[in-house]
Amino acid sequence: MSRSLVITTEKRLFRQQTLTHGGLTRSPWFLGLAGLTVLILFDPLHLISDIRYKQYPLVMVMGLIGLSVLASGGRVARPAWPGVLLAILLVIAIPGLVVNKLEGEASSLFSAISLLLIPLSVYLLPPTLDTF
């Protein structure tokens, strides 16, 4: 095994261990979503539904997915069939939603479709999280 391959593997292992230390329910992906859920439950002003902050959950989810991709080294696990259906739904809906945004449509299914990234991000999580 060449030295560069060893270093690359070690780097990947270090990233996996740093970002996924403690298993699934202590990973940033899981804790981030749990934290967001708890915040939502205790928010009487419904700030997340407010048009000014409506994109924040999506930005946060994208951040969590970014961390997962970093940890897994960009590898995608084999999805289950419901995951495939949701992925197809996301792909076929994107053009219409982009047109809606460009036309400045006040309300569309943007949140319902874009947040599908949450269940789909499961397949970007590193395999170390498959064990407890």
């Binding site: 859920t37 939502i40 419904h46 997340i48 959950p57 999506l58 319902a112 947040l115 269940p119 499961v122």
Partner: peptide, 16 residues
């Protein structure tokens, strides 16, 4: 979003 985030999180837990 305030309902979709927990809803999709549940779906994600089934898939994981």
């Amino acid at each position: 979003p305030e309902c979709a985030v927990p809803a999709y999180w549940m779906v994600a837990q089934a898939l994981i």
